[in-house]
Every structure is written in structure tokens, then in C-alpha cells.
């Protein structure tokens, strides 16, 4: 068991390093095309150095606190992952959660925990749509979650003309956010490992047929897995808003890059392990914060997203995926 854990940790590390290497190549290419002289020095001083050190700028507490939303989102994805279910709609859930929390905070003036609850509810409801379609109509969840995410973001974009965005009243929520992420990670880990529904989920992750022979109600398990993962995704969005991480009503630019991608990258790096997902989310946030401190004139602010996408791509290519990972043919 230990051995297996170490091996998958090593593989994750390898994916991370390979992704970073490819990212560095992209940065060098970008510098080559834009700069005339001092290219290598600029890549190092304006690009790589801030990328690797920028995450510390606000101190460890801020880093961990800011990583909390990503951690919660990747927890949701990991939960579904344990059941062999591909949840790729993180972007939509996150956007819905953020919008719900914003509405609650600005219109109703609810306290932060109530906002968080509402955003989780919104995410849970939206997450159960592909769940329901999967169970009732055998819709494949990979495309179901992706399409529902696009729909959610389109709806919010359409609504953006009607709703004015308000930043949350400045509150220092890093410690509660961190506590929420930590407690959720522990709960999910314990739940998956030590409870009957958790074992149901893991057996479903082996294969649907195995689960049916073992007497697992596969439909119900899959539905609740997607619903809970939606709940966590929504909560992640709410948390992100309350921490001041979202600064406009979600629009389409969040569909392909942004929090959805971060959550998925963290879950993939952790191989679906709930505790690992939190650690991976911190690493992902560290990189994305670091990328934000790069010289924007030379390296586009999107460089961080590109690097994270490359890391996720390496994870996928090295067969770290839910259920049907590296099978042949």
C-alpha cells in the first residue's frame, strides 16, 4: 500500500515537473518573439523567478487561504473521481457559486456563512442536473458536466447586464476558509475510506458492473456523487467571492481557463485522493499567484493558465485519471 502511494506521488511530481518544463519552454518562446536582447535574463528575472517565488508575497496564511476555494473545488472533483465519474464542469459550478454568494451578500446582506450555504446549494442543484441525466438517460457525464457548465456561464453572462457586481465587504476570512477546506478534506477522506457509502463509491469506481454485482445502487451513488461534487464546486465559488478572488460577474472567459482548470489540475495531480487534492490545490494556487506577479508586459497574464493546462495535460497523458485511466486500446 505504502509503495503504491509513493509511486503515485512520484508520478504526480513527474507530471508537475514536466508541465513546468513545457511551460518554461512556452515562456522562452514568448520572450524570444517579443524581446530583442537580454532574453535569457528576462525569462529568469521577469518570468521564472516571480513564478516560483511570487506565491509567498502575501505570506503563508494568505497563500493557504487563497488556495482554499481551489481546494474545495478539487475536493468536489476528487469525490466524483473516486466513483470513476469525470466531473469537468468545475468552471460552471464555481461561477454559479460566486454569483449566488454575490447576490446574497449584496442584495440580501446575509452574513458570509449564509452566503456560502446558498452558493453551495446553487452548485449542488446545478451539479445534480448532469447527475440526473446520467442516471435517467445514461448521458455521459464527461460531456454532460461540460455542457451544463457552459450553460451556467452563458446564463450568468446574459444576466451580467442586469446585475451590478459588488465586491464583498472587506472581511478577513482566510482562517475560516482554510478551516472549511481542511475539515471538508478530512470529512471526505474519512467518508470515502471508512463509511459504507464511501465504499459504494469506490466499488463504483472499479467498474459499474462490479458495483452492480456487489449490490450497490449504482444510479443513486452516481447521482449523489455528482450532486455532492456540485455542492462543493458551488461552495468553492462562494468562498472565492467572499475572499475577494472574483472581481466581476463570471463571463465566458472563465469557461476554458480559470478556477475550473485549477480545480481539475489539482484533482488530477492528487490522483483523486481527497487529502492530496488540498495539497495539490495549494501548489496550483502557488503557481497561479506566482504567475500573476510576472512582468505583464513581457509575459501575458495568461501564462499561468497555460502552465497549469500543460500540467493537467501531462497528468492525463501519464494516465492519472478516474477509473478508466490507462487501459489499453
Amino acid at each position: 500500500m505504502k509503495n503504491k502511494g509513493f509511486r503515485s506521488f512520484g508520478r504526480s511530481l513527474l507530471c508537475l515537473c514536466l508541465g513546468l518544463l513545457l511551460g518554461a519552454a512556452v515562456m522562452i518562446a514568448a520572450a524570444w518573439l517579443t524581446l530583442g536582447e537580454n532574453r535569457w535574463e528576462t525569462v529568469w528575472r521577469e518570468g521564472l523567478l516571480p513564478l516560483f517565488t511570487g506565491g509567498w508575497r502575501e505570506g503563508p496564511l494568505a497563500l493557504l487561504g487563497r488556495a482554499a476555494p481551489d481546494a474545495v473545488l478539487s475536493l468536489g472533483i476528487s469525490l466524483a473521481w473516486q466513483g470513476g465519474i469525470v466531473q469537468v464542469g468545475g468552471a460552471g459550478l464555481h461561477a454559479l457559486g460566486a454569483a449566488a454568494a454575490m447576490l446574497c451578500a449584496s442584495l440580501a446582506g446575509l452574513p458570509w456563512y449564509a452566503c456560502l450555504a446558498v452558493s453551495a446549494l446553487a452548485g449542488g442543484l446545478w451539479g445534480s442536473v448532469p447527475g440526473l441525466l446520467k442516471v435517467k438517460l445514461r448521458l455521459r457525464e464527461a460531456l454532460g458536466t461540460a455542457l451544463t457548465a457552459w450553460l451556467a456561464i452563458y446564463v450568468l453572462q446574459a444576466a451580467s447586464t442586469m446585475i451590478a457586481w459588488e465586491q464583498p465587504a472587506e472581511t478577513d476570512l482566510f482562517i475560516p476558509a482554510l478551516a472549511i477546506a481542511g475539515v471538508l478534506a478530512l470529512l471526505i477522506w474519512l467518508g470515502v475510506k471508512f463509511t459504507v457509502p464511501g465504499l459504494d463509491l469506490r466499488v463504483l469506481g472499479v467498474s459499474e458492473k462490479t458495483a452492480r454485482y456487489a449490490g450497490v445502487d449504482t444510479g443513486k451513488t452516481a447521482f449523489w456523487a455528482l450532486c455532492l461534487s456540485g455542492l462543493l464546486g458551488g461552495a468553492a465559488g462562494g468562498l472565492d467571492y467572499l475572499l475577494g478572488g472574483a472581481n466581476q460577474l463570471p463571463d465566458l472567459s472563465l469557461a476554458l481557463t480559470g478556477p475550473g482548470l485549477h480545480g481539475l489540475a489539482a484533482a488530477a495531480l492528487a490522483g483523486g485522493h481527497p487529502l492530496g487534492a488540498v495539497a495539490a490545490a495549494v501548489a496550483v494556487k502557488y503557481l497561479s499567484l506566482g504567475a500573476g506577479t510576472m512582468n505583464g508586459a513581457v509575459f501575458s497574464p495568461e501564462m499561468g493558465e497555460a502552465i497549469l493546462a500543460l500540467i493537467l495535460y501531462c497528468c492525463a497523458a501519464f494516465a492519472l485519471g478516474p477509473g478508466k485511466g490507462g487501459r489499453k486500446a
Partner: peptide, 17 residues
Amino acid sequence: CMPGTDRDCGFPLESVS
């Protein structure tokens, strides 16, 4: 009942101990 393959029996030993 005993299904015909180890996988169906739940003996892939990946995520289940």
C-alpha cells in the same frame, strides 16, 4: 453468485483493498 471475471468479482485491488 460468482461472476465470470475477477474484475466483476471486485478483485482488481486498485482502489479497493
